[in-house]
């Protein structure tokens, strides 16, 4: 079988099998820095702070002016009212650029509480404070709404009694992906799922077998046009004994991390060697040791279909 027609060998058993969904959910603790840290901390006090950089007054307060790079020379407290310079509405709501009275750079935030069609460039707006502030989010200021009776005042330099800057803000970033199997992983994992068959592709130049299979050889850049069967036995090329625990770990330590070259392949596969005592593993599951795949009861079409590798006792 050759790989010339890539569409035919694609994982075609079901439409959704073209993709493997993957989600990265990453927790962070982010430090906003002095000015933004104080700016956010003061929102629960319903105070709006700007930073002064030469002639510029920027809200929300910044450590550095993006226009000049100049560090903040001090803070100013500004009236939480201003004028809309631009706005846009989408399915999530309305965002607007609000030039806070006495400042030089508009503040981009949500605009809330406007009747359809009532918002115009030049509309005067006032802060809408969150009813359930968290103390660590710009959303403690819910946005800007109709001005109503709100008054204004000149920016007050060097306001007294500023809060300490927030040192860290918890944040979770979630990224969703649907990774295409493509023809090569598709064929490999179809074989793994249905027949426990492992196949690589053979380079037309160096004749080495690539596992995972690829269209071109990673070394020669020559076409790898032939399928080649690879055994489910192999040799440990490198191994270590895992004791640490970390987010998203698949197996409870201790266990053996191994890079295995399967018989018939010229590249490595990353897996686990199971059923071996951590101390004994140092010698028994060392580089050079022979291993065999222990197939799982699951048929998922992934490397996880191999439960782990076991040592072939000579």
């Amino acid at each position: 079988m050759t790989l010339t027609d890539t569409t035919e060998v694609a994982r075609s058993s079901a439409e959704n099998m073209h993709y493997m969904p993957a989600q990265l959910t990453i927790p962070y603790t982010l430090t906003p820095g002095q000015a933004t840290g104080i700016f956010i901390a003061e929102l629960v006090n319903k105070r709006l702070l700007g930073s002064r950089h030469g002639d510029e007054i920027i809200v929300p307060a910044q450590d550095f002016s993006g226009s000049t790079g100049e560090p903040a020379s001090g803070f100013v407290e500004v009236a939480p009212v201003g004028e809309v310079q631009a706005f846009t509405t989408n399915a999530k709501g309305t965002l607007g650029l609000v030039l806070i009275d006495g400042t030089t750079t508009p503040f981009l935030h949500k605009l809330v509480g406007f009747e359809p069609g009532s918002l115009e460039i030049g509309t005067r707006v006032a802060a809408i404070w969150s009813e359930s502030p968290t103390g660590n989010s710009v959303l403690d200021l819910a946005g800007f709404g109709p001005i109503g009776e709100a008054g204004t005042f000149e920016p007050k330099s060097d306001p007294e009694g500023l809060a300490e800057p927030i040192e860290q803000i918890d944040y979770t970033m979630t990224l969703d992906f649907k990774h295409a199997y493509g023809a090569y992983y598709g064929t490999l994992f179809d074989g793994v799922e249905t027949g426990r068959r492992i196949r690589g592709s053979k380079c037309s130049k160096c004749r080495r077998v690539l596992l995972p299979p690829r269209a071109v050889c990673d070394s020669c850049f020559a076409p790898a046009t032939e399928w080649a069967d690879v055994a489910d036995t192999g040799t440990i090329q490198a191994s270590s004994v895992v004791h640490i625990e970390f987010l998203g770990q698949r197996k409870q330590p201790p266990y053996v991390y191994a890079e295995i070259v399967l018989d018939g392949a010229s590249t490595r596969l990353i897996h686990i060697v199971g059923d071996v005592d951590a101390e004994r593993a140092k010698t028994a599951a060392a580089p050079g040791a022979r291993v065999r795949a222990v197939w799982s009861d699951q048929h998922t079409g992934s490397l996880g279909d191999i439960e782990h590798f076991e040592l072939i006792e000579e």
Partner: peptide
């Protein structure tokens, strides 16, 4: 994501 991530340390 297909090759090694699930077992990487």
């Amino acid at each position: 994501p297909f090759w090694g991530r699930e077992f990487a340390v």
